[in-house]
Amino acid sequence: MTLALALYEPDIAQNAGTLARACACLGLSLHIIEPAGFPAGDAGFRRAGMDYLDRAAILRHASFARFEEWRRSEARRLVLCTTRGAVAHTAFAFAPDDVLLLGRESAGVPEAIHAAANARIRVPQVEGTRSLNVALAGAMILGEALRQTGGI
């Protein structure tokens, strides 16, 4: 099993497309938890993903409950990437079968999903800044997770 990236109800097609492209290039699956704030064939999603979307392993889950059914059947740990995370992503010990969950750009994830996560990590930032772009944060975290687990 390899790392996987999941997006919780993504708002911005271009961010999701950028992360789909990253997953295609890194050999990872991308899980989109519906409802997304854009249709599957959105032009911004396709433009950001470019011709890599045909190579991307994208799985759509109708809801978080359906995503959880899949994740639990695979016995994978859920690592929530959040500005409220207690541990820096560089100090966290990733496992090869982790699923890294990124929240919605406009609102993160609800408390119930925070509670469902096995771990909560963050990208450290300077005081007074709110958050990084989700695609940028996802790429940073994926890079560290792949470095630790011996991925690409």
Rank of each mutant, 00 (worst) to 15 (best):
A107R: 13
R76C: 05
V87A: 14
A95C: 00
F92W: 10
C81H: 10
A86I: 14
T90K: 15
G85N: 10
V87D: 15
E68F: 11
L102H: 02
T82P: 03
A93V: 14
A88T: 00
S73W: 07
A95V: 01
R71S: 09
E105V: 04
H89R: 09
V87N: 11
T90C: 11
S73E: 05
T83E: 14
A91H: 08
L101S: 01
V79T: 01
R84I: 12
P96D: 10
R71E: 11
T82K: 00
D97Y: 11
C81K: 06
A86R: 15
P96L: 05
G108K: 08
E74I: 13
P96N: 07
T90M: 14
D98R: 15
R71T: 09
R76A: 00
A88C: 04
A86L: 15
C81E: 08
L100T: 01
W70H: 14
E105Q: 04
L78V: 05
D98N: 08
F92M: 10
F67P: 00
G108L: 03
T82D: 06
A91Y: 09
R76Y: 07
A107I: 11
F92V: 06
T83A: 14
H89T: 05
G108A: 02
D97H: 11
S73V: 08
E105D: 08
A88R: 02
D98T: 10
L100V: 00
T82L: 07
L78C: 06
S106R: 03
W70T: 11
V87Y: 15
S106E: 04
V99W: 04
F94I: 00
A91P: 13
V87R: 12
C81V: 07
R77H: 01
P96C: 05
V109M: 03
D97E: 07
V79G: 01
F92Q: 09
F92T: 07
L101Y: 04
C81L: 07
E69R: 12
S106W: 02
R77S: 00
C81S: 09
T83L: 12
D97C: 09
G108D: 04
T83I: 15
E74T: 13
W70S: 11
A91N: 06
R84G: 11
A91R: 06
R77G: 01
A93P: 15
G108W: 08
V109G: 09
T83R: 08
R72T: 14
S73G: 09
R76P: 06
R71W: 12
A93K: 13
G85A: 10
